[in-house]
Write a protein that binds this DNA or RNA. Structure first.
Length: 684
DNA sequence: GCGGAGTTCTTTTTT
DNA sequence: AGAACTCCGC
């Protein structure tokens, strides 16, 4: 059967997918059939008799993992599989690993995964004066570079460094105390475990004899080291990536991993996939021109395999409203012409730009799906529910306790919580257990009579629910609402209906989860969802809007990218990196299959004020505008518009009619009327 | 402890 | 512009 599924691959793809032992680097340009190649390799390895359970494939997103799983399984003869190959995100792998081996660090494996929001709260609690966002980032960087608290304390020079080191230390203590792990820990802790235990490293690497990594250009130092451990006894590591699409430098990804892969491992086989099957030659040409302005790259250029195609369309607008109108018009035309909405997408560098788009598309009645944005699990009401469930599975979780002890309102405020927390720190007993185990009289001396009663009742309810859950997870869910009236607490508050709808969706989801996985418990559910993001669902009936980051790996027949202005795209200044911005441009351009439209405006309303803008350097770098500005005007010339002609100067449009791609205009130049084509004048 | 009024920060990107 | 946070009077 192997010949059968290999036959649809080109020569390089075949070479890559039939590689068996030793390190392999697949440099796969955008649209070059990367996923096809690695899923085929997965199928190939199985077809030649390798145990599927010994193949590990790691991705960055759930979406990528799901897509690969689906495509690989289509190729594999199900009779060959007893245990399916493990194909998941890095973080999911870390989670599975920690569930098995957390005890190596003398920690229990009933830890809770915290998200960025939780992390922020914890850090804010530790130090109010520092910019939390900064510290959150710094700590992430420390962990991604495997710097321990001691390393950072030793290296701290300035006062600020020391302050950050101090927060890092307290943060780590807090996590340990509450048995919490953050996203970075899901990679760091497995690495630390493997590092201190060579025996285990060997065992693990013998379990996963063939390892594949997708989007290798986005790995960080920690992931590099972790992979090294995972394949320490065989080096059968196949990485796939495109240095030109490395766009996660800001969260610690280092392009060096892919640039130096051939030095990191011995006898690396390199296969380049340079044939693009996605975009028209025109689109590729501009994408190539743009990326050629970068220095840090391995150097490859994508060859088109399709046809020349339409030229890239450029829109210039006065402001975001005019920009939106043009997009609405175009997209409406596409839809009327019978194009499927799922073939159309609008991209932006900065999420904030979606606002005017949403407004415009709502008004026009064109359904759209905003990908990314506010995530379901980040909504306050959902996070509250999750906090409740966490407390139920793990009473040690002071963090979640504090979140929900007063939701709905029970009269427990900050003062009471501070007292409880102080006591908890003093006695080293978690707040929950403290309330549970202390006699009433004792508790009254700490928080007063009224609060004591409230807290005792609250804690008893939680314990009771915990017992119910042991019996039946479904009964538990009903009992939960009866006990706390959480949902009904939103009864007559503004946007309460929306929140209740979210709560209903969440409870529906969790019920379904238990129905489908009767052997799994609440804890499994909680860990599962903390790694989930919204992006899996594809809405076929609506056009998509998303950030360029979110668009990675996707393709659209008709692609629009807005906000090509200096400062918005590329973002310039402090933390930004122009080469990475350019790679983002490259990613954006190469999402387009048939048509690409780029748009820039003269001014935008942003962060509460209107700023004037100049067009992005990427337009000239990609060869879309040369020296003088030449812009295709599809925006209509209307009677009364003021225009400028190189020779005749300023005039006013008196008559306008369509003439192919442009307009035939009758213009009144201070009394003398002339018929002129629109390409000879500029709109004022 | 609560809620309203006032103030400050954000948004570059995300598992 | 909106969210998130702070302050203050009840």
């Amino acid at each position: 059967m192997s010949e059968n599924f290999l036959s649809t691959l080109n020569e390089s793809q075949q070479k890559a997918s039939q590689h068996i032992d030793g390190p392999l680097l697949i440099l796969a340009g955008a649209g070059s059939g990367k996923t096809k190649t690695i899923t085929t390799r997965l199928a190939y390895l199985i077809s030649i008799g390798i145990d599927p359970a010994s193949i590990l494939t790691l991705t960055f997103t759930n979406k990528a993992a799901a897509e690969m799983r689906e495509r690989a399984f289509k190729l594999i003869n199900p009779n060959l599989i007893n245990t399916p190959p493990l194909l998941c995100t890095f973080h999911k792998f870390g989670l599975l690993f920690l569930k098995m081996h957390m005890h190596e660090l003398n920690r229990k494996n009933n830890f809770i995964i915290i998200d960025t929001d939780d992390k922020k709260r914890i850090i804010k609690n530790i130090d109010k004066d520092l910019t939390t966002a900064l510290v959150v980032n710094e700590i992430s960087k420390f962990k991604n570079n495997i710097f321990s608290v001691e390393d950072i304390k030793d290296a701290a020079q300035s006062k600020l460094d020391k302050q950050i080191a101090d927060v890092y230390e307290k943060y780590e203590i807090y996590l340990l105390k509450n048995n919490l792990v953050d996203f970075d820990d899901l990679l760091l802790l497995p690495y630390l475990i493997l590092k201190q235990n060579d025996e285990l490293s060997k065992v693990i690497s013998q379990k996963y004899l063939y390892i594949m990594v997708d989007e290798y250009q986005d790995t960080n130092e920690l992931q590099y080291k972790l992979l090294q451990k995972l394949c320490c006894s065989h080096n059968n590591l196949c990485v796939v990536g495109d240095d030109d699409q490395s766009i996660y430098g800001w969260r610690g990804a280092t392009i060096k991993n892919i640039l130096n892969f051939t030095e990191h491992y011995e006898n690396v086989v390199v296969v380049k996939l340079e044939e693009n099957y996605r975009s028209t030659d025109t689109i590729l040409d501009h994408a190539n021109q743009l990326i050629e302005h970068n220095r840090d790259r391995l150097g490859k250029s994508l060859r088109g395999t399709r046809f020349k195609g339409d030229s890239v369309k450029l829109y210039e607008s006065h402001d975001e409203n005019e920009e939106t109108r043009k997009l609405v018009n175009d997209i409406r035309k596409l839809l009327i012409a019978g194009e499927s909405a799922s073939d159309i997408a609008i991209l932006f560098r900065v999420n904030a730009l979606s606002r005017s788009l949403e407004e415009g598309f709502n008004k026009a009645g064109i359904p759209y799906k905003l990908i990314g944005g506010m995530k379901f699990y980040e909504r306050a009401e959902i996070k509250d529910l999750i906090a409740y469930f966490r407390i139920i599975t793990n009473p040690n979780d002071n963090f979640s306790f504090k979140r929900i002890v007063n939701k709905p309102k029970r009269g427990i405020g900050k003062t009471t919580l501070d007292k409880l927390e102080a006591k908890s720190i003093e006695t080293k007993i978690p707040i929950f257990n403290l309330i549970e185990s202390y006699e009433d009289d004792e508790l009254i001396t700490i928080v007063g009579k009224k609060n004591t009663k409230t807290l005792k009742t609250f804690v008893e309810s939680i314990s009771k629910l915990r017992d119910v859950m042991e019996d039946s997870k479904i009964v538990f869910l009903d009992a939960f609402e009866d006990t706390f009236d959480y949902r009904s607490s939103y009864d007559s508050v503004p946007d309460g209906e929306d929140r209740k709808a979210n709560i209903d969706e969440f409870s529906g989801y969790i019920r379904d989860y238990f129905k489908q996985n009767p052997h799994l418990n609440l804890e499994d559910f909680l860990n599962e969802i903390s790694l989930e993001s919204e992006q899996d669902k594809m809405f076929n009936e609506s056009i998509s809007m998303m950030s360029i980051h979110a668009s990675k790996g996707l393709e659209y027949k008709h692609l629009f990218c807005i906000g090509l202005e200096e400062g918005f795209f590329p973002i310039i200044g402090d933390g930004s990196n122009i080469e990475e911005e350019r790679r983002l441009g490259y990613v954006a351009f190469t999402r387009a299959m048939d048509n690409l439209t780029l748009s820039f405006v003269h001014s935008r309303f942003y962060k509460g004020k209107r700023t004037s803008l100049t067009k992005s350097r990427f337009l000239s770098e990609s060869g879309l505008i040369k020296g003088s500005l030449k812009i295709e005007r599809t925006s209509a010339f209307r009677n009364g518009d003021v225009v400028v002609h190189k020779i005749f100067g300023m005039g006013r449009v008196e008559k306008s009619s369509r003439a192919g791609k442009e307009y035939k205009l009758t213009i009144n130049f201070g009394g003398s009327k002339r018929d002129i084509l629109s390409s000879f004048v500029e709109k004022k």
